[in-house]
């Protein structure tokens, strides 16, 4: 395969990445959020495999495989288990109305495109075009954390930010050193496990996974004291 085609495929994958970030934002139900999160993991893995092929950095294959296992399979499965055990299938009304969230997201994408443009002009990398998208995806993950009520969706938002950062790393520097990457991967895994434990703990303490409810309950308790 020639470079131009690889370039096009990577661009296409980047566009898909952006679309998946938007889809994550647009979901009503927890299960579909998880599906899209898994899709994002798969996309990441495929992208890093293609970058590995295009640049000849073979250690990227390893991180591709790791991404696939961890973010495409393990983490979604863990979260799915949590959801099943806790019976939280529906995200209740998001904090901000969905269409408005979408418009804000579009604005954010536009903004990140605007600020990244000067950097893209000097970069010579194969993946330079995807930088703006990676930035946008990071910001969109944060937006997801802001606009959702449920703790689980917020965690997915956090993990999506991490995914986007990984994507940015592939895009800007052809991936981080393998050691760092493995380290981060384990950090994320541990974080997810801790989050999982927390969910159960929170649930038994507050009877709800909604962040507002926790706050209200805490305030109540303080008043009682």
């Amino acid at each position: 395969m020639n470079t131009a085609l690889i370039q096009q495929i990577i661009d296409g994958l980047a566009a898909l990445m952006l679309l998946v970030s938007f889809s994550l934002l647009a979901q009503h139900r927890m299960l579909s959020v998880l599906h899209w999160f898994a899709v994002q993991g798969w996309l990441l893995a495929i992208t890093s495999a293609f970058v590995a092929y295009g640049t000849g950095h073979h250690e990227l294959y390893v991180s591709a495989a790791m991404t696939l296992l961890l973010k495409g399979l393990l983490l979604p499965w863990l979260l799915w288990r949590v959801i099943k055990r806790l019976h939280v299938h529906r995200e209740v009304e998001p904090l901000v109305n969905l269409t408005l969230t979408m418009l804000i997201a579009l604005g954010i994408t536009l903004f990140s495109f605007h600020i990244i443009q000067p950097i893209e002009k000097i970069s010579q990398l194969l993946t330079r075009d995807s930088m703006a998208i990676a930035t946008a995806c990071v910001l969109l993950g944060m937006l997801m954390m802001i606009t959702r009520r449920k703790a689980i969706t917020q965690v997915v938002g956090f993990l999506a930010v991490e995914n986007a950062l990984f994507f940015a790393a592939i895009g800007s520097t052809n991936g981080m050193p393998l050691v760092v990457e493995i380290g981060i991967a384990f950090d994320v895994l541990i974080a997810a496990l801790i989050f999982g434990l927390f969910f159960f703990q929170i649930r038994t303490t507050f009877d709800s996974l909604e962040v507002d409810a926790m706050h209200a309950s805490l305030v109540e308790r303080e008043e009682e004291e």
Binding site: D11, L18, M102, L106, R128, D129, I133
Partner: peptide, 23 residues
């Protein structure tokens, strides 16, 4: 919501044209 998703997708098309295809 379905139709606004269509709008968002089309707008993403516009953005990705400028982000990915122009340079």
């Amino acid at each position: 919501e379905f139709l606004s998703m269509a709008f968002v997708i089309a707008f993403l098309g516009l953005l990705s044209h400028y982000m990915l295809e122009v340079n």
